[in-house]
């Protein structure tokens, strides 16, 4: 399959899976403003999914739709980073996950605005506005809760400790990534790491949180080699109607 197709899947599966996770909060947030903000984040991510998976389906050229890709692939065909599929945990874990993703997402989208593939740069132009807003919010919340009470600080440190091992995967390229970079579609993933680390250090310093020393990275989501156990459960819910009533139009 083409590098462009793989690339679009990786972008679209990130937003699909993370958007789904965030949408699980609906009606259960700590405060009304957060219910609104979380729904808004999920909505943006699902909207971006329509664009990425729509482009993926177009590039694939088998007459499939974004919905076919979202609802009719099994876990081994998903190409999201593992970070995106991890469970919500408490509100702190959800917002830490969001921050760790948003920081990467913004750097990625910014780089994609100069993609040689116009359809990619068009999506990036649109998505960057939403992602920047998500980042502003998630960063403020991580800082606020990290530098809040003893309890909120402890919870945010626990969230960072749990999630940090899933950050590294975002910067590890495989053959598909290298082909996309070579074609000028996407930036070299490794080249984003220094900027990311600098931003992360600044945020965590303001949040009074300690970044773990161990740089070990869980991998396998972006390549599809090995997802976590969590993804399958998400798909049973997300895909249920489409699977139970094949061929229906909704």
């Amino acid at each position: 399959m083409s590098a462009l197709f793989e690339f679009c899947l990786r972008m679209g599966d990130n937003t699909l899976v993370l958007g789904h996770r965030v949408s699980e909060w609906c009606g259960h947030a700590p405060v009304l403003e957060e219910d609104i903000a979380l729904a808004n984040t999920a909505l943006d991510l699902i909207g971006q999914t329509q664009l990425w998976l729509g482009l993926a389906a177009e590039v694939q050229g088998e007459g499939k739709s974004a919905d076919d890709l979202a609802f009719l692939r099994d876990a081994w065909d998903f190409r999201n980073a593992l970070l995106c599929e991890l469970p919500n945990g408490d509100f702190g874990q959800t917002l830490m996950r969001q921050y760790l993703f948003d920081e990467w997402h913004c750097m990625m989208l910014n780089a994609l605005r100069s993609s040689t593939e116009k359809r990619v740069s068009d999506i990036a132009d649109k998505a960057i506005k939403e992602a920047s807003y998500h980042l502003e919010r998630s960063r403020d919340t991580v800082i606020g809760l990290g530098d809040g009470t003893t309890e909120s600080h402890a919870r945010m440190q626990a969230a960072l400790d749990y999630l940090y091992p899933y950050v590294g995967e975002l910067f590890v390229a495989d053959g598909h990534d290298e082909a996309a970079t070579k074609a000028g579609i996407a930036p070299d993933l490794a080249s984003l790491r220094d900027g990311y680390d600098a931003a992360l250090s600044a945020t965590m310093a303001a949040a009074m949180l300690t970044i773990p020393d161990d740089k070990f990275a869980h991998k396998g989501g972006r390549t599809g080699r090995m997802h976590t156990e969590h993804l399958g459960h998400m798909l049973t819910q997300m895909q249920w109607l489409q699977r139970a009533y094949p061929g229906a139009s909704w």
Partner: peptide
Amino acid sequence: ARNKAWDDGAWVRDGLLAH
């Protein structure tokens, strides 16, 4: 469900206020 959301969110509201 509403009570759980409110109770589980107490540490968040307290944390943001303290900050």
